[in-house]
């Protein structure tokens, strides 16, 4: 029997989340490297997902294990974890990858605990060692240190990866092969007391999603005021880009947490990143260092962000930001 690399497909509002396609794309490459006809497969849990399963096939999943029931519409660790752990125990994948999303970060380790196997969290890369075992690269100390995490004696070797780390390939037409999971044995859990998922509330995304923006304007503590933040928003809008933030900017209340970049936020790789008033704490750099070109504006010439910038402006955000807004405006006339 050929080896298998599994990806757990995350569902948000009835659709497969983008991170799943990124993970499938990486899994496809790893399967090629592993050789011997290694196949990529996916697990999918939710309600009314038969159609969506087709997308997984187009991104390389040779087989999709689908647990589909109206009672599975909302994520719950009480039901999802046993379903996935039992599937993995029965089918013995070599590797099992989850998105390090809000849901995946809770579900993945629960599945790992049930399987008594190891899981590398928030990996920034997944490689194979000379024995074709998973070598996960994991940041710690806010990204200052990268460590290899191996899982040498247990299967599956599990890992979680944030959205935006891997690049999604183009889908190719492919018929889907779905294996429906028999949910009879889980009936008891459906009605279990103690924890009930009530609903999901989405805040409408403000502006362009960060991971789709080609230019990202990121503001840090050095932005200094709500007024400057508003200028940043205006500029991002004119450029067809998005704003991003660091933790201190969120703490100041200039913006919400939704567009925070770094180890406790998102990972981005826009064509151009411009940082305003960002000192460059490792927590933040870890989330933006894959950007195409990095431009930084900061008053302090000692700012660590300058070390990781292609272009640097040692200057006052209060002056540079309005000047840039004017320059862009005049180009539009």
């Amino acid at each position: 029997m050929s080896k298998k690399i599994w990806v757990h497909a995350e569902v948000a509002d009835g659709k497969i989340a983008n991170v799943t396609y990124e993970l499938l794309s990486k899994a496809y490459d790893l399967a090629g490297e592993m050789g011997d006809g290694t196949e990529v497969e996916a697990t999918l849990v939710g309600s009314g997902l038969e159609e969506e399963a087709g997308h997984l096939a187009r991104f390389g999943a040779k087989k999709i294990y689908l647990a589909d029931d109206s009672k599975l519409k909302l994520y719950s660790p009480v039901i999802y974890a046993p379903i996935l752990a039992d599937l993995a125990a029965a089918n013995s994948p070599e590797i099992y990858i989850f998105g390090a999303t809000a849901t995946g970060s809770a579900l993945g380790p629960a599945v790992a605990a049930r399987l008594k196997t190891g899981m590398a969290a928030h990996c920034v890369n997944l490689l194979l060692d000379e024995r074709k075992q998973l070598k996960a690269l994991v940041p710690s100390f806010g990204g200052k240190v990268i460590g290899e995490i191996l899982c040498p004696s247990k299967l599956p070797q599990m890992a979680s990866v944030k959205p935006g780390i891997f690049v999604k390939k183009d889908p190719v037409p492919m018929p889907k092969r779905v294996e429906k999971v028999d949910l009879g044995v889980y009936e008891k859990l459906f009605d279990a007391k103690g924890l009930e998922a009530v609903g999901v509330v989405r805040r409408p995304p403000e502006g362009l999603p960060l991971n789709e923006a080609q230019v990202v304007l990121c503001g840090g503590y050095g932005i200094g005021s709500q007024e400057n933040w508003n200028t940043l928003e205006k500029l991002a809008h004119l450029l067809g880009g998005a704003t991003a933030s660091t933790r201190p900017a969120v703490d100041e209340g200039w913006t919400g947490e939704h567009n925070m970049v770094g180890t406790s936020g998102q990972s981005i790789r826009p064509k151009v990143y411009i940082g305003f008033g960002i000192s460059g704490a490792t927590h933040h750099i870890c989330g933006m260092n894959e950007s195409g070109v990095v431009i930084s504006v900061n008053r302090d010439e000692e700012s660590p962000i300058f070390q990781v910038s292609d272009f640097l402006v040692q200057g006052d955000v209060n002056v540079i930001l309005p000047a840039l807004l004017e320059a862009v405006k005049s180009e539009m006339e």
């Binding site: 070598k135 191996l150 300058f306 070390q307 200057g315 004017e326």
Partner: peptide, 27 residues
């Protein structure tokens, strides 16, 4: 079940060309 392998500090250094001049020139 997980074991640490090698550790390293990632090299993320970039060239750091200085953009200088008046604010308008920099913009």
């Amino acid at each position: 079940p997980t074991q640490p392998g090698e550790i390293f500090t990632p090299d993320m250094k970039r060239s750091g060309k200085v953009l200088a001049g008046t604010p308008e020139e920099i913009a």
